[in-house]
């Protein structure tokens, strides 16, 4: 009798334990992995998000940068972490490219999704003194000089590289490509020193050199114009039917309890819907979103399909 009571108590305790644990989440600091270098666009986005979310979660974030392979190292680390909500991290759209490219064995379906909170369109920039006034003029020149016009972009597999490849395909041109290991921002610096003809980069990355009068954008590959540079037409307006942004989400290891995901989502949602936050991000040319975990999963499913097709078409693999 005593034994059975003990067993019952044990079962009850066990059943009662997991919701109780989730209710007290988070009880210690949360490790947040970012697969890009300190100071880059993704690092900025992730750090700002975490700094403001601490207030709502009551626990600090321990941010760790694992820059390698356009996020590959961080994705692998998150995939292998304990699904208890104490190790989460940032993704960009490379979560949809690295698996089809054969770089890593995990893709978006191997994670739990918390929120899609930000997206940045790509763009192509030239030196302020360059002769080309529009994307059309630039492409015409590139067509007349195949593989002689140099363009900087991140390494293969990255989103800026895909944007450049899509531009080559749609515009019917071939560039001479300069790969930039550290991210697109380095290419823009090379452009400012006139070592190359053009460079790929998001509004966020190019804005500082743009205001310094060193470089100017020929167009952004977004559906609508970038508000802070409203006089710059999109690629679509200039006859290049490409709209390709990088979307940033927060992911957790597969199997993380739903209660934990919801707690995190609620905290991050409060951050990104704060008008002060969205205003400061939009001033830097970044778009703010607050997709729920389910919407995020849906978005990534579509994105996976889009990039899988792109990889097949461009022969990037």
């Amino acid at each position: 009798m005593k034994k059975r009571a003990l067993l019952l108590a044990g079962i009850l305790l066990f059943c009662g334990l997991s919701p109780a644990m989730a209710a007290s989440y988070p009880s210690r600091s949360i490790q947040f992995l970012i697969g890009w270098d300190i100071g880059g666009g993704s690092d900025q986005a992730g750090r700002t998000l975490c700094a403001k979310a601490e207030k709502y979660l009551g626990q600090p974030f321990a941010i760790q940068n694992l820059p390698a392979g356009s996020g590959a190292k961080a994705y692998m680390a998150i995939a292998g972490a304990k699904p208890d909500g104490y190790t989460i991290g940032l993704t960009t759209s490379t979560i949809s490219t690295l698996k089809p490219l054969g770089r890593i064995p995990v893709g978006s379906e191997d994670f739990e999704h918390v929120i899609l909170f930000n997206s940045d369109p790509g763009g192509i920039w030239v030196h302020t003194d360059a002769p080309w006034k529009s994307l059309g003029e630039f492409l015409a020149y590139a067509k007349a000089n195949p593989e002689r016009v140099s363009v900087a972009a991140s390494t293969p597999g990255s989103i800026t590289r895909f944007q450049m490849m899509a531009l080559e395909q749609e515009g019917g041109v071939r560039f001479r490509v300069l790969s930039q290991q550290g991210g697109a921002a380095n290419g823009l610096t090379n452009l400012a020193g006139r070592h190359i003809d053009a460079a790929m980069g998001t509004p966020l990355e190019g804005y500082a050199l743009y205001t310094a009068g060193k470089i100017r954008p020929l167009g952004f590959c977004s559906e609508e114009r970038v508000p802070m540079m409203a006089d710059v037409p999109t690629w679509k307006e200039q006859g290049i039917d490409v709209a390709l942004s990088t979307a940033r989400t927060v992911i957790a290891p597969k199997g993380t309890p739903k209660e934990v995901i919801d707690t995190l989502y609620e905290a991050f949602r409060k951050v990104v819907t704060d008008p002060e936050y969205s205003k400061s991000m939009e001033a830097k040319g970044s778009n703010v979103h607050a997709l729920t975990p389910e919407e995020t999963r849906q978005f990534l499913r579509e994105q996976d399909a889009r990039f899988a097709a792109l990889i097949r078409n461009t022969g990037a693999k």
């Binding site: 270098d37 300190i38 100071g39 880059g40 690092d43 900025q44 750090r47 700002t48 700094a51 921002a185 823009l188 610096t189 400012a192 804005y207 500082a208 050199l209 205001t211 310094a212 060193k214 400061s280 830097k284």
Partner: peptide, 22 residues
């Protein structure tokens, strides 16, 4: 130019952006 040239200045850039200094 608004571009960080080293790992330390990248963190400094982060600190400046946190305080809304571009």
């Amino acid at each position: 130019l608004g571009i960080p040239g080293s790992s330390v200045t990248a963190v400094l850039l982060g600190a400046m952006l946190m305080h809304n200094i571009t």
